[in-house]
Simulated scan of single mutants.
Amino acid sequence: MPANPTQGHVVVAPDKFKGTLEGAEVAARLAAGIRRVRPGLEVRELPVADGGEGTLAAALAAGFTRIPAKVAGPTGLPVDAAIAVKGEVAVVELAQAAGLARLPGGRTAPLAAGSFGVGQLIGRAVSLGVRRIVLGLGGSACTDGGAGLVQALGVGLFDAQGVELPPGGAALRRLHRLDPGSLADTLAGVEIVVAGDVDNPLLGPRGAAAVYGPQKGADGADLVVLEEGLTRWADVVRDSTGVDFRDAPGAGAAGGVGFAALALLGATMRPGIELLLELLGFDEAVRGARLVVTGEGCLDAQTLHGKAPAGVAAAATGAGVPVAAVAGRVELAEDQWRGAGFVAAYALVELAEQPGDSISKAAELAELAGETLARDLLGAE
């Protein structure tokens, strides 16, 4: 489905190029390249995210207001974070408070890292009177099952001696009793929707500890401890609520924060990119467009399983608009990316003059990619 060369605008809707460019900069650079070839063409920049890191930035670029908040980082030290608010909707990005990038000095703490700061961000959103909270999961430094998150919202977690548990997944092995406190009143009338792109359960070989623990510094012995802690956590939550969410798809997301959101916050879970496109107004932006341009750092097999570019391609194709992809690297074969709905795919590594330029000169190469695709798909003005 080729782009219509004479009618409509272009929507530039990339995810971040992890480690090199934020989504907003990718969008700006691609748009600049397109405008250089087609200066009279309307180009709308709409950076996207799939619920992980970059979700807050995407919301801000779409017109949400940044609300700063100082909260506990994954090891308890204070960090400067933020939420995004528009009307009665707030976007909370877990990575702002409990992300790997928030670890002091980058030193992992697999047994002690917690999600308390994420609960503080939710509390901040509630205090502003919002009625809907979109919770983006991804990039977590903790495997505490979301225990810290609910503690920040007033839930008491006690050992057999009645002592409040300290942060971290290891401490959950000592959990004896859960006191919901005023959680229900705090969240009354507030809808929480989790934006996630994983379907892992909380426990077992596909669970939060086994699959994601090593990324957070956990070795073999640590994984045993964390699995025991999460199992005890699931048992106590089941006994307290009468409902068992340990096997729910997505319960293992973000070190088990997905579990706490489902079991104790009454959250629903939706595919991240689907939810974010709705939140960012993608349907309206793409209406009447002649072309959509999306992308991410690497177009690979993971792209085909719910990552942002595939979601953008599906949504745009459903609206009858062709989609092109730009990535740092394209590891999919042509039949694969065409099968995913893309009419063209451009790799920065193929535009680079020297090895490594796709990283060090990513911004300039993104502009060049914008120029190239404009000539290929839109024609010169």
Rank of each mutant, 00 (worst) to 15 (best):
A3Y: 15
F17A: 05
L21F: 01
E25M: 09
R36D: 12
R38E: 15
V43T: 12
R44S: 06
G51M: 13
L56V: 05
G73Y: 08
T75M: 07
V92L: 08
Q96T: 06
Q96G: 00
A98R: 04
L103A: 03
A109E: 07
A109V: 12
A112M: 11
G117Q: 02
Q120M: 12
L121P: 00
I122S: 01
G123F: 11
G123V: 09
A125T: 04
V134Y: 06
G145E: 04
G146E: 03
A160Y: 08
V163F: 07
E164F: 03
A170V: 04
R173C: 10
L187H: 01
D199T: 15
L202F: 03
L203W: 07
L203H: 07
R206H: 14
G207Q: 11
P214T: 05
P214K: 02
G217Y: 13
G217T: 05
G217A: 02
R238P: 00
D239Y: 03
V243F: 11
F245Y: 15
D247E: 15
A254F: 08
G258K: 10
T268I: 09
M269Y: 02
G272P: 03
E278D: 15
G281I: 15
A289P: 07
V293H: 01
V293F: 08
E296N: 10
C298A: 14
G306A: 10
G311L: 03
G311P: 01
A316N: 05
G320I: 14
R329F: 06
Q336R: 12
G339L: 12
Y346S: 00
E350P: 00
S358W: 05
E367F: 11
D376I: 12
